[in-house]
Nucleic acid binder design. Structure first.
Length: 421
DNA sequence: AAGGCGGGGTC
DNA sequence: GACCCAGCCTT
């Protein structure tokens, strides 16, 4: 790369940015805490999605000290629906580190910022450059795409080594005294013009010297190996409506502190033994049961009508086995699909009653298919153990505003309460 | 280096 | 319905 090419690119881009930048809430000022929060939210998340979350979050936790002092469930609730919830926990941990180590002020030192929980190379560069105007690169997916195209780089951007290489390139392009604007300009161009699918080359400020376009490769760059497809899972969920003192309330549980959807609340559910096996059982059972009530939230299959005695049996057995939760599934309620990056959940929701167990006592191996199809599993009231496991509780609709649920269960619960009003 | 970790959008 | 969007952490 010649110095003329670099200065052409940088000055054209900077000029374009200053005339075209969007008005975004985190561009109101240069408060490093505000920049930090925005950058964490913007990881893997689009601007339009982030804006309302950002406004709410900043109102509730306006400073690192406020965030550090907040109860964790409140932070999680504020993040509800945004995804990748470890970001929220890490951000709060980072805020506590800022309070303890730096008296509540985000440090303007690269190493100190990088050592904060949840702050990696990209976020550190973004904070250093945008908040403090220090000449550090901030290379995200936008930047890798823009620079891959402009310099016609054929490196696979899915490889960690490529990010390191592009960081060096990006660092060399930063104009004197304009690190913050330049880094934002790169990302803004990637978001508005140099888009993944159909890049708007004709409106691009650096089109004339774009090597990728000159080579006719703007549509094939950047090179990126595909992620492997998500694995399908069938999840059997219990919609348990309480009686007596819990009348009208629904039984929910909190997930473990680590792993998928950590600390979030949900309906009790189990992994159906085998996707293929379950499908075979379903076919053998000839499930033509009519829907009891409740909407079919979304349809993943073609003309399946839902509800399967073998699944009801599995739900009862596995909840007892895994959680010590005794319930009796009564009827199929609905179905919804939920797509994560690495898993696809097909969630089958069954209405269930609390306090029942299988007559034959101890959980057995999978019930014989024919038996499952032709007879209902025999249940009896369990008088002895009607206690809930400790991570379980009954909630009314009002308590939905206090507990954080992933979207898939928010959809189910909102639908349920809408129907029972 | 590879995989876990949510939830969206476009065409 | 098939495609796309990705940064930090753990292993």
């Amino acid at each position: 790369m010649t110095t003329e090419a670099a200065s052409y690119f940088s000055s054209e881009l900077l000029g374009w940015y200053r005339g075209n930048k969007r008005d975004l809430p985190w561009r109101l000022n240069r408060d490093p805490y505000r920049i930090w929060v925005s950058e964490v939210m913007l990881q893997q998340t689009r601007v339009d999605t982030v804006i309302p979350y950002y406004e709410r979050f900043m109102e509730k936790f306006p400073t690192a000290a406020a965030l550090a002092a907040a109860p964790e469930p409140e932070v999680l609730k504020c993040w509800e629906g945004l995804g990748y919830y470890s970001r929220a926990r890490n951000l709060q941990t980072g805020a506590r580190e800022v309070v303890e180590r730096h008296g509540g002020a985000v440090p303007d030192d690269k190493e100190a910022v990088s050592s904060l929980r949840g702050v990696g190379p990209y976020t550190a560069g973004a904070i250093m450059s945008i908040a403090f105007n220090k000449p550090e690169p901030a290379v995200d997916g936008n930047v890798m795409r823009v620079l891959s195209r402009f310099f016609c780089l054929e490196d696979d951007i899915a490889k960690p080594a490529t990010r390191v290489k592009i960081e060096k390139l990006a660092a060399a392009l930063i104009p004197e005294g304009a690190a913050g604007d330049f880094n934002q300009a790169l990302m803004e161009l990637g978001a508005l013009v140099c888009t993944p699918k159909s890049p708007g080359c004709l409106t691009c400020p650096v089109m004339l010297h774009c090597e990728g376009r000159m080579a006719g490769k703007e549509h094939v760059l950047p090179i990126k190996t595909k992620a492997k497809p998500p694995r399908p899972e069938t999840r059997l969920a219990a919609l348990v409506v309480g009686s007596g003192e819990h009348a009208g309330k629904v039984l929910v549980r909190q997930r473990p502190a680590s792993g998928l959807l950590a600390q979030m609340w949900e309906l009790p559910h189990v992994l159906a033994p085998q996707a293929g096996e379950a499908a075979a059982q379903k076919a053998a059972a000839g499930c033509g049961r009519k829907r009891a009530r409740g909407a079919q939230l979304s349809v993943s299959g073609s003309q399946r009508s839902g509800g399967d005695p073998a699944q009801m049996d599995q739900l009862c057995r596995l909840l007892a086995q895994e959680e010590g939760l005794l319930i009796r599934p009564v009827s199929w309620w609905g179905e919804t699909e939920h797509i994560f990056s690495h898993i696809i959940w097909d969630v089958q929701v069954y209405q269930a009653e609390f306090g029942f167990r299988l007559k034959d006592g101890e959980p057995q191996t999978a019930l014989d298919q024919t038996q499952a199809a032709e007879s209902l599993v025999p249940y009896e009231i369990d008088t002895g153990s009607s206690e809930l496991p400790t991570n379980y509780r009954y909630i009314g609709v009002e308590e939905m505003s206090e507990l954080a649920f992933p979207n898939v269960f928010l959809r189910i619960l909102r639908d349920y309460w809408e129907l029972t009003e």
